[in-house]
Each structure stands twice: as structure tokens, then as C-alpha cells.
Amino acid sequence: MSLLHIEDLDTYYGYVHALKGITLDVETGEIVTLIGANGAGKSTTLRAISGLIPIRGGSISFDGQPLNGVPAHKIVERGVSHAPEGRHIFGTLTVTENLNMGAYILGKDQDAITRNRERVFKLFPRLEERRRQLGGTLSGGEQQMLTIGRALMASPRLLLLDEPSLGLAPLLVRLIFDTIREINAAGVTVLLVEQNARAALKIAHRAYVMETGRITLAGDAAALLADERVRKAYLGEQ
């Protein structure tokens, strides 16, 4: 049984039919990536999984339990963490406070919080150096590290990453993708939404290609990386 199973999912933004019958699976231990153009519904899929937008048709289940109708703040407790697009860190909270909010569901379990924070600091030593700084004063790359680190603070089994490389310098993009691999190697399953299709396909096991609210292609990441249609449409090759 898949860790995450989405079946025939429909969602709307107002009257706009955003997702039109999406079906996808993520198995335990995988990195799965969703690629596609702007507005294809990649972020919407993540937002539906974490309960930010209502499911209007079909179903989402995590670890065999349905997520339909479960409020967003309860979905984190099930083991799904979402690092949103655009580095939505809490600007007037310190780095440590931001991380503590990521561990909100752990309550007063200080041991677990400290352990997770040490893990995050090991992944991103820059965050440790800046732990007393306000989130809003960090650079773009550091904010992205904080967004990912904060999502890891809840000890998730599934990490949803939305455009982690957006707007970052090439060197930082490499660092972020290496870290995603490292996080996955430590046992966290990853569902990765990316515009940078090449980098995403290189680290992913499997991939889905989305177009205007539908999944148009699916398969092994390596196979898609070699696929003629993918190369033309998403990897910028003639």
C-alpha cells in the first residue's frame, strides 16, 4: 500500500476547476516529483494534500487513512509536513522561534524538539549561526533553508516541498537539492514540486508531469529525463 494515495482528485478555486481527476501514488522512501508549467496545478495538489483547499471529488489517503475533510492543522499531526512556495517564514520571529513553530505539534516534548533542531542545524549549519536573527532578515537562500528545516521539525514521514529552488542562485540550488537527497536518505519520503524539471528529475525516483490540472505523463524519473516530449516541453531542448 502506498504511503500517499490520491485517487481521481477534483478541486476548485472559486469557479475554476483547478485539478481535474488527479491520480498519483507516493511509496514509502521515495522522492517523487511533480513537474509542469506554471498554473498546471502542482502547488494546488500539495495544498489539497495538506488540507488548505477543500477536496471536491475523489480522495486522498495517507498511510491508509483518508485525509478528506481533515483540517490542515490535524494533517501535520498525521505526519505530513508542507514547506510552502515562496519561503513563507515568520518574518518577525527568530530562526529558533520559526523552528519551534515547526515543532508545534510536539507540544512540550523538549527532548524531541531539541533533537530535531540539532538535526536541522546539522543539515543547514547556516541556520545555527543565525538562530537568534529574525527570519525576515535572512537572505533568500537562508529563508529557503528555514522553510525546509521548519517543516522537518515536526518529524514528518512525508515532506511536501513546493518550488524549493525558486529564485535561488545556481550554487544554492545545488545545495538545496543535495540536502533533499540527504533528507530522503534519512528516511523521509518526499513529494517535490519543481519548475526546475532537470534538477528534480535527477534526484527523484519517479515523476508525474502535469498540464492544466491533469497528469499527462508518469514514470521513472530517469525514463522521463530521456523522454522526447519531456525534453522538448520542460527541459528546453529542441
Binding site: L52, A72, K74, A154
Partner: peptide, 10 residues
């Protein structure tokens, strides 16, 4: 600061 992200924190 942010309702949506707060919900994502649980």
C-alpha cells in the same frame, strides 16, 4: 503574521 502557514505548522 500568517494564518495559512500557521495552519501548516499544526
Amino acid at each position: 503574521l500568517d494564518h495559512t502557514v500557521s495552519r501548516l505548522m499544526g
